[in-house]
Design a protein around this nucleic acid. Structure first.
Lengths: 209, 209
DNA sequence: CGCCTAGAAGCAACAAAATCGCATTAAGGT
DNA sequence: ACCTTAATGCGATTTTGTTGCTTCTAGGCG
């Protein structure tokens, strides 16, 4: 059994994948997501529909792939000199991007065509990585820091819950408030509550393909 | 302009709707969600496929409708004599139901075929109603109670986030921990933090159809 | 450097689904 | 009892999804 070439990351396959992804991005902008069809994407990408059906299964899984790519953060969070400032800024940007109509659409798409939860897990990992960067810097400065898990529960989760389940009522002020409460909790609750049960830290992910 | 009959809630339409919903429930159990098709549902329900396409648009929206119905709580939360006990019990049951494979499937379906977020909002409203029942009882007893919004942010949102984005790592102990932290926050943070900005209370919903 | 192999894409026939116009039924108001 | 019209049924048509087979090519090997 050859240990390596289970898939083919390079060459034609890669070109086809990129071409298809590009076609999806273009067409979403031109005709809208609802009007998208697999044959339409195939034509634009210069491939046959069966190629798409075989690689992605259906339009949802393809859209999910594209959405996850667009949800990947492009830069590290800004360094503003303090944990609080960094978290505030990151949370505000997070809300801006995620709560916008296109952001909501990407989130939905990412969750949608994702039988095994891989893509959803990737989204969660992106947020955790960004938070970890902020926390690592704060540790460098000697600031006390909350756990990543706490921030996910207290900041990320409420934002995503609102995006998915309660359209509206979501703005920068709310994001800051969540950060305030999370940081406050970290300062006052440490040791005063049952320690977070079994919260394995998320390890750094490789930079992906 | 006649003020009422924009739709036809009763009579044949209602029978068709019920028949179709029943067909979906049966077939999901028999052949599985993935094998479901609109024509299949139509045949079982004794209607023509075009009826389903016209009323629901596609299979996803139909599944979303069915899922929301099944996510509706059937009973009020148990009254165990104290806010803390009631919340613990409710949160545990919530996790049990929502984190189970069928529960996760219903949540996904409910979110999936829901262009305008109506169904998702309904799910959120169900949880808020249940929480309100528990809180109202606690008020009757004279206990201090947190706001519904706080419990949604601190208990419901983290649970749903994990269900959707992080398969695994979700159990009754975690649910209790969330309740503990939320109640603790309510006891210690009141007045010690910026008041929750612009968090309009969710008004009592009419008992639905 | 040029064969081999196997995974991936192309092609085309086919099967299944979704859409649409038109006829028919029946809810709900008058 | 009648009328209006939303809703359903039905069938023709279009579009989408599937499948077997062939062709191409990336990557390993001699």
């Amino acid at each position: 059994m050859s240990p390596k070439p289970m898939v083919r990351p390079g060459g034609r396959s890669a070109r086809v994948q990129e071409s298809v992804h590009a076609a999806v991005r273009e067409l979403v902008g031109e005709v809208g997501r609802d009007a998208l069809t697999v044959p339409m994407v195939a034509t634009r990408a210069g491939v046959t529909p069966s190629t798409i059906y075989r690689r992605w299964g259906d339009l949802q899984e393809l859209l999910s792939d594209v959405a996850v790519e667009r949800l990947r953060p492009e830069t590290d969070p800004a360094d503003l000199g303090s944990l609080r400032a960094d978290l505030d800024a990151w949370a505000e940007q997070f809300v801006d991007e995620m709560a916008s109509p296109p952001g909501r659409a990407y989130i939905r798409d990412a969750l949608l065509g994702d039988p095994d939860g891989t893509n959803a897990g990737q989204c969660s990992a992106y947020a955790a990585e960004q938070i970890d960067v902020v926390l690592a810097r704060a540790v460098q400065r000697g600031e006390p820091v909350p756990e990543t898990e706490l921030l996910i529960d207290r900041v990320v989760a409420p934002i995503m819950y609102r995006i998915l389940f309660r359209p509206g009522r979501l703005d920068a002020a709310y994001a800051r408030e969540l950060v305030t409460n999370a940081v406050y909790a970290q300062q006052t609750e440490a040791g005063a509550r049952p320690t977070r049960a079994a919260a394995p830290r998320r390890s750094k992910k490789k930079p992906d393909n």
